[in-house]
Design a protein around this nucleic acid. Structure first.
Length: 921
RNA sequence: GCGGAUGUGGUGAAAUUGGUAUACACGCCAGACUUAGGAUCUGGUGGCGCAAGCCGUGGGGGUUCGAUUCCCUUCAUCCGCACCA
């Protein structure tokens, strides 16, 4: 009987389910290994073949680790809160809960068909109150903690209150929204709401009026990582800046630890680099420039180039700078106001798109250079950003291209302070060189001048070393319904927490999901959305990243009603050993998760400071669209090779009716009514389609579902083919062409074990050396490849092995039995079926991963490749027992060698590892 | 502009402590079987050349007995960050 994958796969999937094969418990007798996939957002479109790529890789790795004797935690769940479900609800009135559950069911049935070894008893859904209870709990902890820079960790807010009682802000170094200074006496005179305001300045979850990314179309604010090029990542709607009161998480408090922690992680260099960029640490100086005529008032700036202070010829403030108007002279005020108004109108997007245009306005004010007392004019310009540093800069046009452009535009002087460089056309942005025109710095190199200047400004008290980060605090509230409610209510505008014991605060039912008529949040519709005492609850909900920030912890102990995760479970599973997912979460989820974990670590709830030890980013699978070419104004289609002879229109055609780029004409005619009478101009009797790589989407007709592949070829073929497609981390188009090769391989594999009529053909005969070599070579290669996540090459190794064993006619159990265990991580269904047929006890996936025997790889003779001057010429088979001298002697005596020597005496004979020979002429 | 990655047949790709370039698979070509089929099997398949042979891993240069691999330079494509001071 032939390989009946449908029957086999169905049988084993049912058995695994019934037997609970993949259920794991905390088994202290075995070493643990935690393999995690980024859990999916269950969208209405279901899975396409790109989604399972990472899951297949992690499943192979999990099964491999299990065979290697590890107790493997390999869970799965759903990131189920989110905008799309709510958008769909607004359009159709269907409750997001309903559509989300439907989508999850669909996902589950698709996933089940692929034969994953997930422990579904640990499944979590972020929209489940039993789960989001712990999201709310973590939020409450953040609300009641602040970050102490001295102890370098989160501390209870009570400690801060205690400190204020005793000494006010004296000596306090804590992460805050803005620096405050008050005495213990002042603190004691503050009333409750004043004190709350002060504390909010320090809490790790806090409210503040900030510039936010407001997306009118979605009716909500978005985090920085949810905005790209001024448009929302979801939906692509315009985003504008607005000042709004929002909840935030003080992620910046952890900037340094988030940066340093990267060095301990086994992540790709490029991913670490993205995070380093995003955190954007720069070391520089904070400096104060006194403003002329404003007694004692000094303008604070940040610079990384303190060495260039003598080259400062003007100052620039962001138009949003709080002193922009107050320092302006009366005669300049009108112009200044006009400029501020004009830049306010320009959206962030316009400002970004238009970076070459120079604009600005003189304020009439002058600063004094604190080092030489020179008068320096102060300008406003929108090339200085309010959100970075202090929103004010000292401009050094000689050595900064933006300052240079501004100086040229306003005809301001340019003073070089680093030698070299031609300043007639552009600035000289030198990072090294000799200092000039800089008094005590003259003659020093830039690298020496920076610390020298830092020392000087500290000494005369006009500035200090300062570290700046690009990272911003995470805006944590969203003006929408389908998310975690904040466990917060208000008394006289002061936020209070819902008692921890009464969590979760459940999302109330609702039937209209849009914003209210007066633009309020959807939750404002809910009558009775307040405490028993009538205090109103917070109306916004938490963002998408809230639920995904600690989910890996919950998998360790998913049914615990008392704790997020018990100490026992956490100390066993610790953290994720292998995390597989897309690179698109580099600056979102992967930053927030690390922050969240570090916070819980500070509080002693988790025992590891980093959540994800090793991370592998699987590449994206793009679509491979197919095209037909219709001759304009006709119903005639011309084959791709002939299309240039006609004036044609390119039309996407469903990839499912194209095979190896050949169109199935009859199905095409039936595909759509407009094509039913289509005529075709063929090449060689075939209609050849054109193709292009595009995003996989319905509108391109290039979506391939895993279900249809499983139906046609089986899950094992799908699993192996996805791995065979190319390196895991590389993006590549899906191309069903070629899947036949993999399917053929599995049929050949089957035929090693069974005769054509389906009887087991395996014998107890001793295997010959060649077959043993073929097997052990493969064990070695596959084992190494799995460790290196090089699954495509291990598939090739299997194919070679099966071809060799087929040619050798090997039927020996000695070889064929280990081979089943070896292939099990890749093709678990066929492995189990054969394992059973071989009469083996237990399950193939519990069989130890075979170890290779080096003795089987030893060879008696070797084909020595012989090169002349590095150019390979011929091979000579010689016994490996010969010494190097004997090999050389045999070789030089060889006729072919003589031919290439052509009478010359070789200058040198080079042996490499005693095997490769190069003869130098 | 800064940073990262990639570049090998018609296609997906393999090979790196420097040592037989193109394994494996698709496609294509030829053949076998067959009530000539998008089935199965066998063989061939980097380019040029009748052949000996020559050329060949984006281009140019270097180190080396020997370079896809190391170094310099350049081009192309993709990705990330970006008036970040």
């Amino acid at each position: 009987m032939e390989y009946d994958f449908r029957k086999i796969e169905h049988k084993w999937q049912e058995r695994w389910k019934e037997a609970g094969t993949y259920k794991v418990t905390e088994d202290s007798g075995k070493p643990k290994f935690y393999v995690l996939d980024m859990f999916p957002y269950p969208s209405g479109a279901g899975l396409h073949v790109g989604h399972p790529l990472g899951y297949i890789a992690s499943d192979i790795y999990s099964r491999y680790k299990r065979q290697k004797g590890f107790n493997v935690l390999h869970p799965m769940g759903y990131d189920a809160f989110g905008l799309p479900a709510e958008q769909y609800a607004i359009q159709t009135g269907q409750h997001p809960q309903t559509t989300t559950v439907n989508n999850i069911d669909r996902y589950r049935s698709q996933l089940d068909k692929i034969g994953f070894s997930f422990d579904w008893s640990r499944e979590i859904r972020t929209c489940d109150p039993d789960y989001y209870k712990w999201t709310q709990w973590a939020f409450e902890k953040m609300f009641t903690h602040y970050y102490d820079n001295d102890t370098d960790k989160a501390e209870p807010i009570e400690k801060l209150i205690d400190r204020f009682e005793k000494q006010g802000t004296e000596g306090l170094d804590a992460a805050c929204t803005e620096p405050l200074t008050f005495t213990a006496a002042q603190w004691r005179t503050m009333n409750h709401s004043e004190r709350e305001k002060v504390l909010e300045n320090y809490r790790l979850a806090f409210r503040a009026a900030t510039q936010v990314n407001w997306c009118a179309e979605l009716g909500t604010v978005l985090a920085n990582d949810e905005v790209k090029d001024g448009l929302s990542v979801r939906g692509g709607y315009p985003v504008e800046q607005r000042l709004m009161q929002q909840w935030l998480l003080r992620v910046t408090a952890y900037a340094e630890r988030l940066l340093n922690g990267l060095d301990t992680l086994e992540w790709s260099e490029s991913l670490k680099e993205i995070q380093r960029n995003w955190i954007g640490k720069s070391i520089g100086a904070q400096m104060f420039f006194p403003i002329e005529g404003h007694d004692g008032k000094s303008l604070e700036i940040f610079t990384t180039r303190a060495d260039t202070v003598f080259g400062v010829t003007f100052m620039v403030l962001a138009p949003e700078h709080e002193w922009a108007e107050s320092i302006s002279t009366p005669d300049r005020l009108a112009d200044v106001r006009a400029y501020i108004a004009q830049s306010k109108k320009r959206s962030e997007r316009e400002r970004m798109a238009d970076t070459k245009r120079v604009s600005g306005v003189f304020t009439g004010a002058y600063c004094l250079n604190p080092l030489n007392g020179k008068r320096i004019p102060v300008y406003l310009s929108d090339y200085v950003l309010a959100g970075y540093g202090t929103g004010a800069i000292m401009a050094v046009p000689a050595h900064d291209s933006r300052d240079y452009a501004f100086a040229k535009h306003f005809d301001l002087p340019v003073i070089p302070v680093v030698e070299g460089g031609d300043l007639s056309e552009s600035s000289y942005d030198a990072k090294s060189g000799k200092m000039i025109n800089s008094e005590f710095l003259d003659g020093l190199d830039v690298k020496e001048a920076i610390p020298a200047m830092l020392e000087k400004i500290a000494e005369i008290g006009i500035g200090a070393l300062k570290v700046n980060y690009r990272l911003r605090d995470a805006i944590f509230s969203r003006q929408r319904y389908w998310g975690e409610p904040f466990p917060v209510y208000y008394i006289d505008g002061v936020a209070h927490l819902v008692d921890e014991k009464s969590l979760p605060l459940e999302l109330p039912p609702i039937d209209n999901f849009g914003p209210t008529a007066d633009g309020e949040h959807p939750l404002a519709r809910v009558k009775g959305w307040h405490t028993k005492d009538g205090y109103p609850y917070e109306l916004s909900t938490m963002p998408g990243f809230a639920g995904s920030s600690a989910y890996y912890l919950r998998y360790m102990d998913p049914h615990n009603t008392q704790e997020l995760v018990s100490r026992r479970a956490n100390e066993y599973w610790r953290n994720v050993d292998l995390y597989v997912g897309g690179i698109e979460h580099a600056t979102g989820h992967l930053i927030y998760s690390r922050f969240w974990n570090k916070f819980l670590f500070d509080l002693g709830y988790v025992c590891e400071s980093e959540p994800f030890k090793k991370l592998v980013n699987q590449g994206m699978i793009q679509g491979r669209s197919s095209f037909v070419y219709r001759i304009k104004n006709s119903n005639t289609f011309v084959s791709a090779g002939l299309k240039d002879k006609h004036d044609t229109q390119e039309i996407h055609v469903d990839v499912n009716i194209v095979k190896n780029d050949i169109l199935d004409i009859e199905t095409f005619r039936a595909w759509r009514d407009e094509f039913k009478d289509a005529e075709f101009i063929l090449e060689d009797g075939k209609y050849v389609c054109g193709w292009a790589v595009e995003k996989m989407s319905k509108s391109m007709f290039n979506v391939v579902n895993p279900d249809s592949i499983v139906e046609h070829y089986g899950a094992d073929t799908l699993r192996i083919y996805e791995m065979f497609l190319g390196p895991l981390e590389q993006s590549k188009p899906w191309d069903t062409n070629g899947i036949d090769g993999v399917h053929k391989f599995l049929r050949k594999f089957w035929r090693l074990y069974f005769t054509a009529d389906g009887t087991l053909a395996v014998t107890d005969d001793k295997a010959d050396a060649k077959a043993m070599k073929a097997l052990h070579k493969t064990i070695k290669k596959v084992g190494e490849d799995i460790e290196n996540f090089s699954f495509n090459t291990s598939v090739s190794a299997f194919m070679i092995c099966v071809n060799e064993l087929g040619e050798l006619g090997c039927r020996s159990r000695q070889v064929l039995e280990p081979l089943v265990a070896l292939i099990c991580p890749f093709a678990p269904h066929i492995a189990e079926e054969i394992w059973e047929a071989l009469g083996m006890k237990g399950s193939a996936c519990d069989a130890p991963f075979p170890t290779y025997d080096p003795a089987c790889l030893v060879e008696e003779s070797f084909e020595y490749p012989v090169s002349f001057n590095g150019k390979m010429r011929f091979k000579k088979e010689l016994s490996l027992s010969l010494s190097a001298e004997e090999v050389e002697k045999e070789l030089l005596a060889d006729q072919t060698t003589q031919k290439y020597l052509a009478g010359n005496t070789p200058k040198k004979v080079v042996f490499v590892k005693g095997k490769i020979i190069n003869i130098v002429l």
